[in-house]
Write a protein that binds this DNA or RNA. Structure first.
Lengths: 227, 227
DNA sequence: GTCTATAGTGCGATAGAC
DNA sequence: GTCTATCGCACTATAGAC
């Protein structure tokens, strides 16, 4: 699978995401016409992610958001009851989406070496499509309240567990030579995260997500190679 | 070299760092008695790093800083002329320190495989001693002005270049098998950064910096192994 | 459903007493 | 050299016109 294929398979449009947010937050959202609400939510979230990733969620004032999105302050407050709730909506929706997308990709019947390749590709492709969201989750975790921070940590460990399981399975089948699967999964994760955290670096070097996936798979497989 | 040895070799006390900051910012600092200034600067920076790493530099108000450090608002403003200047002082001093510490460690006459091990250890040990600073640099880059952001990027690429050179040298001497030294250096860097960005994870798993160094060296060497 | 106007709060920064 | 008191401003959030 290449990135182009992945992109066409998934087609996560902002519209879809926002329709879902609309459905699940009808309590807080004062607007009742779906078409209007979804269109404005898409605008609000896109703008909020853009501004937050530029200078941080806290530094983004709702006046900034109002000006850049073209919606008035009053209009904004029809879609959330406080700035903190906007943060929650972004975080919750992103987490839900990520989990759904990742489990969809993994074929539990495949061989470990194949699963490892698929998992690496799936992570990179997903974070490429949703780069703004992932960058946001990473950088804004510290602004969440305790209970949401806990969810965020669980989510991180959950992703790592996927890799730990693949590595352990590959070890048992003698496809991999892994001394410490927990630490190995942990560094694999850090290399995956680098893709969306340092986008500027890879863009400047004209490295595409497929280039990076290819390289990373080669690097990891070479490190795990059975002698 | 182990971490304990490194720590005793370097002894970067906050006092020393702050004495240097005092010397180089006497223009902005109204206080003239060195002993007083250095003591208060140490307090201010320690507190500022702590609060910023908890909730971000922008979200930390100077009233927070005043309350937690025990210094009044007026006193704080004797040590910097604006909140932005405080940010600059932290960033500049940290960058200078890092560069000095790293170049001190590297022995240019050593063999590439030995240099690689030393460079990995030096990075990990340094970021362990100065964890708060490095976490701060990473997270607060986006709050800097353009010219400082540029310095920050240069600093990142500079560190990567150290690894690129080692990898290329090792390739020429056929100690390593590296296909793409730029990308390889890049992922090594991301694994090194994970140590100070995800401290909570390693602490929870009771992995010491020496454990991590040992693992990482093994992992990287295994990936670079000549067949 | 969206706007403008504004209330109320907490911020960065400073002046002047000690 | 440090403090308290305060200024002016920008922020979040809301009320009420349209």
């Amino acid at each position: 699978m290449t990135f182009e294929e992945f992109k066409h398979m998934t087609i996560i449009s902002m519209e879809e995401i926002c329709r879902e947010i609309f459905m699940e937050n009808q309590a807080s959202i004062k607007i009742k016409k779906e078409a209007v609400a979804v269109k404005n939510l898409a605008n609000i979230f896109n703008t909020a992610l853009m501004l937050s990733n530029e200078k941080g969620f806290q530094s983004m004032s709702l006046r900034d958001l109002s000006r850049t999105s073209g919606l008035s302050m009053g209009a904004l407050y029809s879609y959330f009851t406080s700035k903190d709730e906007l943060l929650s909506m972004l975080q919750n929706q992103g987490r839900r989406l990520t989990r759904r997308m990742l489990t969809k990709q993994i074929d539990v019947n495949a061989e470990p070496d194949e699963m490892l390749r698929t998992a690496i590709r799936a992570h990179l492709y997903l974070t490429e499509v949703m780069q703004k969201w992932f960058y946001f989750f990473y950088m804004e975790t510290k602004n969440l309240d305790k209970s949401q921070q806990k969810k965020s940590i669980e989510s991180e460990l959950e992703t790592e567990q996927v890799f730990i399981d693949i590595l352990d399975a590959g070890c048992r089948k003698q496809q991999f030579d892994v001394e410490n699967s927990v630490l190995t999964a942990s560094v694999i994760k850090s290399m995956l995260q680098d893709w969306y955290l340092k986008r500027w670096k890879y863009a400047r070097r004209q490295i595409s997500v497929d280039d990076y996936a290819e390289f990373l798979i080669g690097f990891v497989e070479s490190a795990l190679k059975v002698d």
